[in-house]
Design a binder for these strands. Structure first.
Length: 847
RNA sequence: GCGAAAGUGGCGGAACCGGUAGACGCGCCAGCCUUAGGAGCUGGUGGCCGCAAGGCCGUGGGGGUUCGAGUCCCCCCUUUCGCACCA
């Protein structure tokens, strides 16, 4: 049993003294930027989940390095944000004191893990020299018109009188005082990421990412094609429940509608993906906070409408999104609008199932063909009128303009498989999809509709009414208005506030520090007030990878030369939990900086691979369950090499796996036996490949392991090396140094300390990672003269026979039939067919 | 509800284009060695029948395609994750 502690300390010191892990950023010939998601340095220390992620990325980086690349593998700390702030509040230690401690602890843990970090180029987001450039990025977006101020709702605890982050709301209640949480409108800064929605979506077609991550991004962006349709408001008495429009396209454009579309009377605009169902729109629904509600509401309905709006506003943002089991609620406003297709007066309701944030905040309700509208109509007894039907129903009807379609308990939503329009005037009988286009075109002539694309992606709210973040670099001046802080005045330093708790009065912590917010207007020199919100942590992490190669430049965020050489990132490995927000935001920021001329590329990560989640004995790790793995304990006990090997062996890296204490014994034995075998080989000094079977095993393993590393299949790579070791030691044989050398090199990415030690013992110049090359397999060495041919009868395996490579079918048959087990089954009937795949398989088909 | 992924021994997991299911490891069993220690070494280990040779069954369930299906197609069940009334 070898003692890992000594050699791990030895090699860590060696690597550091010789700057083994610090590539020459200006001279590297084959730069390879291997990025991993930098951690949030929690006070509890490094989590095994972090280490799992980093270890896999390190396997990849070290592999690339042994393949001849100059690998840059930096690390940093994402240290701003609500987690740190809340923890600091809990333990009552100021974050400016707590964070450096946590970072020191993380650094200690990471340094002993054997990961090939370049410690000379770290990035910490809370460092003013870093967030100076975070603020600079804000200013670039502001100047480009991509940072704007808008009103937006936040979670609001009426008892604590404070803004709450979504994480602080539990079951609709404040996690601290359990009061019911509501919403409040605040003026906040937004980045207009929606301007980039189309490009962010389009580029997903060519970047090389894990497919599930691409799907998640596509869904999040949520592009839908449809139409914007305008429904004129109907006056109190006019617009009889007319049906004349049902006569057809010509008749439908009644003068009243045309008149009202000219702007004298505001129309209700809706977005729909189903313009084909317009003739079935029997009512409308607005979001409770829709601006037209006021105007639409009739006197007799006012009290009820107001009550509903107030109640809706009191539901917090988190709860409102939880929709299961909620029955539809809503209130009639008393107002009406005109269906532009039928000319009918239809009632306008408000309901909280319509969201102000999506589309126009208003919908045309087609209960026959939308499940939500259907439920709402059933709830309130509104008309349900089918306008789309399956072709067989249409075929059976005398007139497609007057079809009676029976709906059961659900709306009929199909429309893309040949369904046809019915009860839709002149459009009746058309296929639904074509009908929809024709209806939009027809209304378009009157300015009542136009094709439109909508995204579910929202603009990115970056304002946080908290303390622990970079101040937003904006000033408000009575004379000059909103004034950006001049770039030369950056950073706007976050002051050391003793009392940084979110205010009892709802204002941001920085708004209580006059020495912070009182400033001179950079434009007129008069009194101005600083923005007191800080920015979202996601902004810090949206560009950290751009900074790593340029950390030694203090006069620019990114150095053009370094950036050209190292970026975009060659490989980014990280958790799927960041599949959407972090990855999308960093793509957006990169795209904007590209457009503004600061970067020569618009996609930051050429390849992204997600890693899986690690669980503990079948259950998620959590502090409350007490099943959290502390890496320190395991490294103390088994060494970093064995721990790394086990982490990557316990399951497929991209799917995650189950951590079991007992499992670590296997990898530990494997490393120990490898050391024994190598040392035995060195002791005898025998060279060459005396045994062709062993030589073949060496080459087969090289091929297998190389392929596995390419696809991040680390578990099978380790298994293949274990197999090789078993072959080298089979029957108590002692391997030669030549047999063992490729094993040691391939062990490099897995157990770097031991591999470097054994490399040295084999007579190599340290470090392995500087002087060894990944072995290549020789295809000629894989060939055998004899092959084991599986023989089947009717697809069932009956024997395997040894035949010469490339044997003819006759020869193979003869060899197979010579076997009694085959003969017996073949003799049962007549051989009607023989399937022969040379060197692979022989199958007799017997009837 | 929508989206994504996955169901294989006692356990973690292998299996490239359909072609010897269970590699590798844990655990377990037997043996060896030993100052019995949770060390090391050797061999065995899917289930059932059989002294054996060998046979039958077997990749969540049910159908199908094929000489041949863990792998492809259809239906169903279960689990995990993400989104959550997106019009």
């Amino acid at each position: 049993m070898h003692d890992p502690t000594t050699i791990e300390a030895k090699w860590q010191a060696w690597w550091e003294a010789n700057r083994t892990n610090e590539p020459d950023l200006d001279g590297a010939a084959r730069p390879y930027y291997n990025l991993m998601m930098f951690p949030y340095p929690s006070a509890e220390g490094l989590h095994v989940g972090n280490l799992y992620a980093f270890t896999g990325a390190d396997f990849h980086g070290r592999f690339r390095r042994l393949r001849g690349h100059d690998v840059f593998q930096p690390i940093g700390f994402d240290a701003f944000g609500i987690h740190s702030e809340n923890y600091a509040l809990k333990v009552d230690i100021h974050p400016m004191e707590l964070i450096p401690r946590s970072i020191a602890n993380f650094t200690r843990q990471l340094r002993r893990s054997g990961i090939m970090y370049d410690w000379s180029r770290t990035v910490t987001t809370t460092d003013p020299e870093y967030y100076r450039w975070t603020q600079w990025i804000f200013l670039q977006l502001h100047r480009a018109g991509l940072a704007v101020k808008k009103e937006a709702p936040v979670n609001w605890c009426p008892s604590c009188k404070t803004v709450l982050a979504n994480e602080q709301v539990e079951g609709g209640r404040c996690e601290r005082c359990t009061a019911e949480v509501g919403q409040r409108l605040l003026s906040q800064w937004f980045f207009r990421i929606t301007e980039y929605a189309e490009r962010l979506l389009a580029n997903l077609d060519w970047i090389d990412w894990s497919s599930s991550t691409l799907t998640a991004q596509r869904n999040w962006i949520g592009r839908s094609e449809g139409a914007l349709i305008r429904f004129a408001l109907a006056g109190e008495g006019d617009g009889a429940a007319g049906v004349e429009a049902a006569g057809g396209a010509e008749g439908a454009g009644d003068s009243e509608v045309a008149e009202q579309a000219d702007g004298t009377n505001p129309a209700i605009e809706v977005f729909t993906t189903r313009p084909d169902t317009l003739f079935g729109a029997t009512f409308m629904v607005l979001a409770p906070e829709h601006p037209l509600v006021e105007a639409l509401t009739t006197e007799d309905r006012r009290a009820e409408v107001e009550a509903y709006r107030t109640a809706a506003a009191a539901i917090d943002l988190v709860e409102r999104r939880k929709t299961e089991e909620r029955t539809k609620t809503g209130v009639f406003t008393g107002g009406h609008a005109v269906n532009p297709a039928t000319g009918e007066r239809i009632p306008v309701w408000i309901a909280d199932y319509v969201l102000m944030e999506y589309g126009t905040g208003a919908i045309m309700a087609v209960p026959a063909h939308d499940q939500r509208d259907f439920e709402f109509a059933r709830q309130f007894g509104l008309e349900i009128r089918p306008v789309v039907a399956p072709p067989e129903v249409v075929a059976a009807a005398a007139d497609p303009a007057a079809v009676d379609l029976e709906l059961g308990d659900a709306a009929f939503v199909a429309h893309a498989a040949g369904e046809q329009l019915v009860n839709s005037g002149a459009f009746s009988g058309l296929h639904a999809e074509e009908g929809g286009e024709r209806i939009v075109a027809w209304l378009g002539e009157r300015g009542l509709a136009e094709p439109q694309v909508n995204f579910r992606l929202h603009d990115w709210c970056i304002s946080r009414q908290r303390y622990w973040g970079p101040p937003i670099p904006i000033l408000y001046c009575d004379a000059c208005g909103t004034v950006p802080v001049p770039e030369e005045d950056l950073p706007v330093v976050l002051p050391h506030l003793e009392r940084f708790k979110p205010g009892d009065d709802g204002v941001a912590p920085l708004a209580k520090d006059a020495s912070f917010y009182e400033a001179a207007c950079p434009s007129c020199g008069g009194a101005a007030r600083r923005e007191t919100d800080v920015s979202d942590t996601f902004l810090d992490s949206a560009w950290y990878f751009l900074r790593y190669p340029s950390t030694d430049f203090d006069d620019r965020p990114v150095d053009p030369g370094r950036t050209r050489r190292w970026l975009p990132v060659d490989m980014y490995i990280g958790g799927e939990e960041h599949a959407v927000l972090h990855l999308l935001y960093s793509r957006f920021i990169t795209m904007v900086l590209h457009d503004l001329g600061h970067l020569p590329f618009e996609e930051p990560y050429e390849r992204f691979r997600k890693h899986g989640l690690i669980i503990r004995e079948g259950a998620k790790m959590s502090k409350t369950k007490g099943n959290v793995v502390n890496p320190d304990e395991y490294i103390d006990r088994y060494g970093a090499d064995a721990f790394r090997t086990y982490l990557m062996f316990l399951g497929p890296y991209q799917e995650g796996g189950d951590f079991r204490d007992s499992g670590i014994a296997g990898p530990q034995r494997f490393l120990s036996r490898t050391a024994d075998a190598v040392r035995a080989a060195v002791a005898t000094g025998a060279t060459g490949f005396p045994d062709p079977d062993v030589e073949r095993a060496v080459h087969a393993t090289i091929r297998q392991v190389t392929g596995d590393f390419e696809t991040l299949s680390f578990n099978t790579a380790i298994a293949a090396l274990m197999e090789l070791l078993n072959a080298l030691r089979a029957g108590g044989r002692v391997p030669t140094v030549d047999e063992v050398r490729p094993l040691v090199v391939m062990l490099g990415p897995i157990a770097p300390h031991l591999a470097d030690e054994l490399w040295e013992e084999l007579g190599g110049t340290p470090s392995l990672f500087e002087h060894a090359r990944w072995p290549e397999h020789d295809p000629a060495k894989l060939r055998t003269d004899e092959v084991e041919l599986p023989v089947q009868v009717n697809g069932k395996l009956r024997a395997t026979v040894s035949v010469p490579r490339g044997a003819t079918e006759e020869a193979a048959r003869e060899a197979a039939l010579a076997r009694e087990g085959v003969q017996r089954h073949v003799a049962d009937g007549e051989v009607v067919k023989v399937v022969y795949l040379p060197d692979r398989l022989l199958n007799f088909v017997v009837r």
